[in-house]
Amino acid sequence: MAMKLLHNDYLHLAVRLFIGGLFIYAGLPKILDSMEFAASIYNYKLFPAPIIGLTAAFIPWVEVLAGTALVLGVNARGSSLLISVLLFVFIALAAISAIRGLDIDCGCFSGVERKANWLAIFEDIALLGCAFIIFYFDQGRISPIVLIKKVNNPMKKEASS
C-alpha cells in the first residue's frame, strides 16, 4: 500500500508543488533583500565574510530556480538533489546552533520568525523526506510542462492513454 502510494504520480505532483512553492517563497525575499539574509548568516557566528557574502548572493537563487523547476516539472531530479543538499546544510547549521545554545532566527523565511532549534531540524528532516520522494520515485509524468506538451500533441496523448 505504502509503495503504491510512493509511486503515485499525483503524490509526486503534490510534493513537487509543495516543495517547489516553499522554496520559491523562501528564496524570493532573500533575493530582494540579500543584506538581510547575509545578516542572518552572520548571526550563526560560524563563517568568515567571503562565505557569508557568497552564500547570501547565490543560495537564494538556487532555492528559487530549483523551486521553479520543481513546480514546472523540469529537471525535477537535479532540483531535488540540490534542495536535498541545501536541507542537509540547514539541518547541520540548526543542529550546531541548538547545541551551542544560540537563540537566533534561522533566516529560512524573511519576515517569519523561525528559530534555529530542534523543531526547525525536525521540519527540515520532513522536507528532506519529501525531496527524497521526488528524487527517487518521481517519473515526472504529471506536470504543467507535460500537460502543455499533451495539449500541443493530442496524438501522443491518445496513444499513451
Binding site: 533575493i31 540579500s34 543584506m35 547575509a38 557574502g53 557568497l54 547570501a56 548572493a57 547565490f58 537564494p60 537563487w61 538556487v62 530556480l65 530549483a66 523547476a69 529537471n75 531530479r77 537535479g78 532540483s79 538533489l81 540540490l82
Partner: peptide, 21 residues
C-alpha cells in the same frame, strides 16, 4: 540537470547581487 541550475544561479546571482559581492 543540477549543473544547469547552478549555471543559472551563478549568472543571476552575480548580476542581481553584484553590490553584495
Amino acid at each position: 540537470d543540477s549543473l544547469w541550475i547552478i549555471f543559472f544561479t551563478i549568472l543571476f546571482g552575480s548580476v542581481f547581487n553584484y553590490l553584495l559581492l
